[in-house]
Amino acid sequence: MDGGARARPAGFSVRARVIAVAVVTAVLATVAVVYTVSAARRADSADPPSAFGLDRGQLYFRSTREGDGAGRVARLAAAPGAAATRAKAAPAPDHRTTGGPACERFHAAGGTALCLQRRPGIPPAAYAVVLDGRLRETRRIALTGIPNRARVSASGRMLSWTMFATGDSYATTSFSTRTSILDTRTGYLVKNMEEIPLTLDGRRYHSPDVNYWGVSFARDDNRFYATVSTKGRTHLVEGDMRRWTAHTLRENVECPSLSPDNTRLAFKKRVREGARDPWRLYVLDLRTLRERPLAERRSVDDQAAWLDDHTLGYALPGDGGKGSDIWTVPADGTGAPALRVAGASSPAPVR
Rank of each mutant, 00 (worst) to 15 (best):
V130A: 10
N192P: 04
N192F: 06
F106S: 11
T172P: 08
A128Y: 06
F175V: 10
G156Y: 04
G110T: 00
I141E: 04
S153Q: 06
R134D: 12
L131I: 08
S155W: 02
G156D: 04
K88V: 08
R149K: 09
I146W: 10
A126V: 05
S155E: 05
A89Y: 02
A128I: 00
Y170R: 00
F106W: 07
N148Q: 14
R149S: 09
C115T: 05
P123M: 00
R96G: 15
A165H: 09
I181Y: 07
T173G: 09
T112C: 03
Q117G: 07
T177C: 02
G167C: 03
S155Q: 06
H95V: 13
D168A: 13
M193L: 15
P93L: 12
A108Y: 03
G121H: 13
V152W: 00
Q117H: 01
T184I: 03
K88P: 07
R96Q: 15
A128E: 05
G99K: 00
T173A: 12
N192S: 14
S176W: 09
F175K: 11
V152C: 06
A126Y: 01
A92H: 00
M163F: 05
A89F: 02
H107I: 00
M193V: 15
L189I: 03
G133A: 15
A108N: 07
S160G: 13
W161L: 05
G121N: 09
L131P: 11
I181T: 07
D132W: 10
S180N: 04
T162H: 03
F106E: 14
P93Q: 08
G111V: 08
N192L: 03
T98S: 13
G167M: 01
N148T: 07
I122S: 14
W161D: 01
L143C: 10
A150H: 03
G133I: 10
P124E: 12
A92K: 13
K191P: 00
F164I: 05
S174E: 15
R157L: 08
L114P: 01
H107N: 15
C103G: 10
R185D: 12
I141K: 02
A125R: 07
I122A: 10
R105A: 14
S180I: 11
R178L: 09
S174G: 09
V129L: 06
R185L: 14
Y170F: 12
C103N: 02
G100E: 08
A154L: 08
A150Q: 06
Q117N: 06
A171W: 06
R149L: 13
S169E: 06
A125D: 12
A126W: 01
E137A: 10
F106H: 06
L159D: 08
A89D: 14
T97N: 05
P91I: 11
A165G: 10
